[in-house]
Design a protein around this nucleic acid. Structure first.
Lengths: 367, 367
DNA sequence: TCAGGATAGGTTAACGTTAACAGGCGAGGT
DNA sequence: ACCTCGCCTGTTAACGTTAACCTATCCTGA
């Protein structure tokens, strides 16, 4: 009687014991159709006793939907990913969907793998928040073509039948850089990208444009930390890139008076390199980060940074996806760009906003 | 002809066009059995042209396995979660399994939801790395009872048929505290737990034991940051707890000379509170964190902390799970405890290890 | 009295895939 | 000539669930 692998309980098993047909059990489990109260109670009792769990495979197969959505992110271990997935989950779980997360640490191969897994397992839709790449984009296009609802977050890829949500990082980078220029800086470094592969990083483009619009030259030596250091590295360790990059900038005979880091972790690394060199922030070197991670408020000095409404982007992408799942899968693209916000703190302006630990709004209110 | 939702291509569709039976197509797709080279090529051609994706639901239903494993974590946005999932994925993806991650932000309800989703979708096994709770443990027991392979990481729950992997955080906490005591500290604070609910946090127990073994009293006022502040908060924001907790300790008439924080984020918050108060680390207050996140190396001063082999725990849990999936689902429990390592840096010992950005080993070598 | 609706439950046939079995055909051995 | 074995393909019947349809009561109101 004791087989090695015990078989899961099925509707038929319950039906046999409760002396009804599987269909009736199904009706009880799903609370649909008419079932007599007595019958319902009896069936429910048996189901509970036998520890029944419905079979999502069979269910999905028959109903042609799984009530499941996939979220593809790189770089977990990053407040950004956490906020994003939080927003996505908020919206979807309220509507009865389960969110499964697939991680692709920023390689195109893993991206494609993640898409395929989700498509194969018939997720009702996919939200993609990884960086674009040629091969992954092609596969994405195939999936869209074959009718799977897809919603993109901050991904540089457009398709007539995939929704798109992003933050205006170009403007964010532009404003951060302008802020430094406004404070009198003329030699501003950038950490976290190389000139050649930086064309895709919008915040870097914003940096370049701000320099140009203000008649400042772009100096190659002031741009450090490109691919060789870690285009592929997990995000939470980009602070190493910031530390190393800053060290390089400090070794220049004429070093920059201000630095813009690609994200707050990178900025944090730079910050510590500056302090270790015995220099003051912002008097000797001003510093701007990007993302406004919680920690940015608790460094000393506190970090000037650019905040993007991450949670809202997640919510929005989820809402777009829902509309597509529950409506026409091939409806025209919805697109929304969120504005970023420059948060000025002590690392660029002595005596700027200093906020103690807990009086900081954490959740963006529901729309 | 253009329906609103296009139907996915099936084996039968391909079979019709390639003039074979679905079974033959199945053989081609799965590379199993005998198929003539010409037939294979023809079928493959049609499949590619029609953009076929196999239906994992039907496949799983028929084969009684999905080649899918669920990983339940709280607290994404934490290097710990990232390393853990990295280890898990390394092992499982190499063996052809897809890892789906479910997030449960440390509430029992979400835990149970995650378990249910994964069980319903017939994941072949589940790895659980969230904190234990009564209701979640009960559901877990039910799932184990019904034959789903389960592997636990750092979860205070034992079951004869579920594997268990953990780090010896009791010893870690003990050693961290002893390190402070060895350096002459007699009044040592703890941030991140309240006396009442702290009984489950092993590293806190280690702290208590170390005090006791060294004849030092436990002072309630030195233990701050319990449930009221944020037992439920996302981990990446526990630095707020550190900041607020430290502020509380600083307000005491006789403040501690050393502080042990429940994790590095908390320590980071504490560190900034101390600096903002104009005190020196470690001269005025020594500080120890826990987890050795990458950032711990780049604060000033660098942070003394306890490192647990996170990636290896993930790998180990995955290996245990595989053994269970591919063997007897009800084999006896495997259990492994990993040792932690105290990393002494400047925050407790002036002039201790200072390491520059990149010469630090990142990946633990494959066994 | 009887049409018509609400209630209760059974029957059938899929959803897409594949394990198991059943040929058929040709080559090689005896 | 016969048997065997390797190759190639087809047939059948599930896997567990549910949509769609059907039957049989019972009640209500005209």
């Amino acid at each position: 009687m004791d087989k090695k692998q015990k078989k899961p309980v099925t509707l038929a098993d319950i039906a046999a014991i409760a002396a009804v047909t599987p269909m009736t059990v199904s009706r009880v489990i799903n609370n649909s159709g008419y079932v007599h109260a007595d019958t319902r109670a009896r069936v429910l009792g048996v189901a509970r006793e036998m520890n029944y769990r419905r079979n999502g495979l069979a269910r999905g197969l028959k109903r042609q939907c799984t009530e499941t959505v996939g979220l593809v992110i790189g770089d977990i271990a990053n407040p950004f990913a956490a906020e994003l997935s939080g927003g996505v989950r908020e919206v979807l779980e309220e509507r009865g969907y389960t969110v499964f997360i697939c991680i692709s640490e920023h390689t195109a191969k893993e991206d494609v793998q993640a898409f395929d897994s989700l498509a194969d397992h018939r997720a009702d839709g996919i939200i993609v928040a990884t960086r674009a790449s040629k091969s992954a984009n092609e596969r994405l296009a195939e999936l869209i073509e074959s009718g799977i609802p897809i919603s993109l977050i901050g991904r540089d890829f457009r398709h007539p039948h995939a929704d798109l949500v992003m933050a205006d990082n170009l403007k964010g980078g532009y404003e951060a850089t302008c802020h430094l220029i406004d404070n009198g800086h003329k030699r501003i470094g950038f950490i976290g990208v190389s000139l050649t592969d930086g064309v895709r990083l919008r915040r870097f483009q914003g940096y370049l444009e701000a320099l140009k619009d203000n008649g400042l030259p772009v100096e190659d030596r002031l741009i450090v930390g490109g691919r060789e250091v870690g285009e592929q590295m997990p995000g939470y360790s980009t602070e190493e890139m910031g530390y190393d990059g800053m060290m390089k900038l400090l070794e220049l005979k004429s070093r920059p008076t201000a630095v813009f880091a690609r994200n707050d972790f990178t900025a944090m690394g730079a910050l510590n390199a500056i302090k270790r060199a015995g220099l003051r922030i912002p008097e000797d070197i001003a510093l701007v980060g990007y993302d406004d991670i919680p920690l940015a408020l608790h460094t000393s000095p506190t970090l000037t940074t650019v905040r993007q409404p991450t949670r809202e982007q997640g919510r929005c992408a989820a809402e777009f996806l829902l509309r597509r799942i529950e409506g026409d899968h091939e409806q025209p693209r919805a697109e929304k760009t969120f504005d970023c916000e420059l948060i000025v703190r002590e690392s660029t302006l002595p005596g700027a906003e200093v906020v103690s630990g807990s009086n900081r709004k954490r959740k963006i209110k529901t729309a």
